[in-house]
Computed example of a mutant assay.
Amino acid sequence: MKRSGFLLAGLGLLATPVAALLRFGCARSSIQRLDPLVNPGLNPSPHLHQIVGGNSFNITMDPTKHDLASLSTCTSCQFTEDFSNYWTAVLFFRARNGTLKRVPQLAQSGMEGTQGGMVVYYMSDALFDTAQKSSVTAFKPGFRMLVGDVSFRDRNQSRAFRQLSYTCMDSQASRSPETVGFPAGPCKLGIMANHRFPTCWDGVNLDSPNHQDHVAYPESGTFESGGPCPSTHPVHLPQLMLETVWDTSAFNNKADWPTDNSQPFVWSSGDQNGYSSHADYLFGWQGDSLQKAMDGHTYVSAPMLKTQSIAEQNKCVVKDMVNENYDGWLPQLPGDNPM
């Protein structure tokens, strides 16, 4: 989808640069084989996803017709103005006998009681920079993007994306070290999947055929290091980051792991190495609420936004449109994806 008037401030398409950091939890709203960004209209899509955000998530979400903020009646995110949808693949444990079991998601500290889900960040600067002074431009209605590639299976391929990583968590405070592939050994608490999206925009297109070409990484360095955007993508976006903690603690007995002692986890796409890690984003903030929040120059807190209880977050679910079993011990991945 293209919106060519980005430079025409008189049309209201040019947002004021903003500086802030938002951090909030989103409960899981659905687990099913649907992907309206990569596979619109396909039911079911090739592999299983866990989805959070607005409950208007559907098989097809045409950006010219589907306005998430107006069509959603609730959101599973803490801030009630955020009807965006965020989703990733689902993690499975592969037992020694070849059967598979879905790994549950674990709420982060302070968000206990949330049904699965993830933690979402919108940042102007590095995560631990409380000043958040850099100027960024908030996303526009209809904006969408994808980070990662479901077909990648080796380390060299994964170099195409920056800062898609995993953290083997010993406790809720664990944030390092980060690895590009799945951790090799058992993780006491769980495995955190970290998804950091590109932060430079071409200023024109709200989407692109592969859902990636309209955005780019900094020309050098990273968002956190203040790297400049390339001339082809001159507009600084907030750093959108997703953290999903997969509770692998129940699967730490290595006697249950494959006999070759290889790590036993696999994405729902069939990837056993972790290099295919990917995440999807459909912008759906209500009105100019995200703009106002980031204009507030706040760090984590956002008094200008409305919050809801975890109980209310958990109530916001998306109806099941696929109707297949993904729990218990399974002989194969949903969709029969080869490993």
Rank of each mutant, 00 (worst) to 15 (best):
N43R: 14
L127T: 12
D202P: 04
F83C: 02
Q308V: 08
L146D: 00
G284F: 04
M241Y: 02
V245P: 02
D129F: 05
M61W: 02
P17V: 12
G53F: 05
P338W: 08
W246C: 06
Y122V: 01
H47E: 06
R23A: 13
A173N: 13
H297C: 08
S268L: 09
M61D: 07
W246Y: 15
S134Q: 13
K133Q: 12
G117P: 09
D320Q: 13
E219N: 13
K101A: 15
L68D: 04
L100N: 03
D62I: 03
F223T: 04
V300R: 11
L34G: 01
Q286W: 04
P104K: 10
M145C: 12
P177N: 09
C200V: 09
V119K: 03
W257Q: 08
G12L: 09
D271E: 05
G227A: 10
F139S: 02
T244L: 06
V103Y: 06
E312Y: 01
W257D: 08
D125E: 14
E243W: 15
R23I: 05
L127H: 07
L242G: 03
K292M: 06
F79C: 01
T88K: 00
N261D: 14
L290V: 06
L13H: 13
R28L: 14
D213L: 10
A27V: 06
E112P: 01
A302I: 07
S208K: 07
A107I: 07
R155H: 07
M123A: 14
R162L: 10
P104N: 11
L127M: 14
Y275N: 02
G5W: 12
Y86N: 05
I59K: 09
G5F: 14
S45D: 11
D67S: 12
K2Y: 03
M321A: 14
C187G: 11
Q78P: 00
L127W: 10
V147I: 14
F92R: 07
Q313P: 01
P46G: 07
A173C: 00
G5Q: 11
P264D: 11
S176T: 13
A89S: 14
N43Y: 00
K188C: 00
S309K: 10
A9R: 12
D207F: 02
G12C: 06
V266F: 03
P186V: 05
G41A: 09
T64S: 12
D207S: 15
P46Y: 04
P183Q: 11
D213T: 15
H236N: 14
F161K: 00
